[in-house]
Computed example of a mutant assay.
Amino acid sequence: MRIREILRRKGDAVATVRPETTVRQLLAVLAEHNIGAAVVSPDGTSITGIVSERDVVRRLHEHGADLLDRPVAEIMTAEVRSCGPGDDVEDLRRTMTERRFRHVPVVEDARLVGIVSIGDVVKSAIDELESEREHLVDYIQRAP
């Protein structure tokens, strides 16, 4: 299965925030969209970084409530691992598991075209297993 199939099912909407967005504003975006991360982008198509709930929690522990009024550029991950729509989902699952990250932006022609979470990847694996099970059951029931 390819990443484009996941995007086809879930959609290509990506929550982005500008680098100067405050952490407080970021939290509002995450809550509004019920998501765990946002891509940091000055224009909605290029990627400057990614910022997650984990980033906020870890920095809150270090800096306290003053963190809420700081820009997300101070806490984002600047080295962002991305994938393309044609990439294999199984390869991405392995990479996400090994490197311990939960959100991967999808980029095509140097433009942000979607985002995939570990939940999306797991759901696609479960869907594939369910489809295989149905085919096997159908095959067994048709056997003489």
Score class of each variant (00 low, 15 high):
96 M>S: 08
113 V>F: 12
10 K>R: 14
142 R>I: 01
61 H>K: 13
100 R>C: 02
39 V>K: 02
37 A>Y: 03
4 R>C: 08
94 R>N: 01
111 R>M: 10
131 S>R: 15
110 A>V: 07
87 D>E: 15
136 L>A: 12
72 V>D: 01
17 V>H: 00
63 H>P: 00
67 L>H: 10
67 L>I: 06
140 I>G: 04
82 S>Q: 04
136 L>S: 03
2 R>M: 05
69 D>G: 10
127 D>N: 13
6 I>C: 02
93 R>F: 15
113 V>Q: 08
143 A>Y: 15
6 I>V: 14
125 A>P: 00
60 L>Q: 07
75 I>C: 02
33 H>S: 02
21 T>Q: 08
85 P>F: 08
40 V>D: 01
10 K>F: 08
28 A>H: 09
98 E>Y: 02
22 T>V: 07
18 R>P: 01
19 P>K: 10
78 A>M: 09
25 Q>T: 10
45 T>K: 13
130 E>Y: 07
71 P>Y: 02
88 D>Y: 05
135 H>N: 14
143 A>K: 10
34 N>W: 00
73 A>F: 01
111 R>Q: 14
99 R>I: 04
137 V>I: 15
117 S>C: 07
79 E>V: 05
65 A>P: 07
134 E>V: 09
98 E>I: 05
117 S>Y: 10
113 V>H: 10
39 V>T: 01
58 R>W: 05
24 R>G: 01
26 L>P: 06
129 L>I: 06
57 V>N: 06
46 S>K: 13
74 E>Q: 13
18 R>I: 08
58 R>V: 09
114 G>C: 06
141 Q>L: 13
130 E>R: 14
131 S>Y: 11
139 Y>H: 13
50 I>M: 03
62 E>I: 08
98 E>V: 07
90 E>K: 08
13 A>R: 13
59 R>K: 14
3 I>G: 00
137 V>C: 03
16 T>F: 06
8 R>Q: 12
93 R>I: 02
141 Q>N: 14
84 G>V: 05
61 H>S: 12
130 E>S: 15
115 I>R: 03
134 E>Q: 14
23 V>S: 06
35 I>E: 07
137 V>A: 11
13 A>P: 00
122 V>E: 10
130 E>P: 02
65 A>L: 11
34 N>Y: 00
34 N>Q: 12
26 L>F: 07
130 E>G: 13
63 H>R: 15
56 V>R: 04
13 A>T: 14
20 E>R: 14
94 R>Q: 09
81 R>Y: 07
38 A>Q: 04
135 H>C: 00
9 R>N: 03
133 R>Y: 11
45 T>I: 09
105 P>T: 06
51 V>N: 04
29 V>C: 01
110 A>K: 14
59 R>E: 15
27 L>Y: 00
112 L>I: 05
90 E>V: 10
14 V>T: 09
118 I>F: 14
123 K>P: 01
7 L>N: 05
18 R>Y: 01
104 V>G: 04
106 V>H: 09
113 V>D: 07
7 L>I: 09
73 A>S: 15
27 L>F: 00
88 D>C: 03
5 E>H: 15
41 S>P: 03
72 V>Q: 03
28 A>D: 11
53 E>P: 02
131 S>V: 08
38 A>N: 03
11 G>A: 05
4 R>S: 13
106 V>E: 07
125 A>G: 05
61 H>A: 13
84 G>Q: 12
97 T>A: 15
100 R>Y: 04
3 I>D: 04
80 V>R: 04
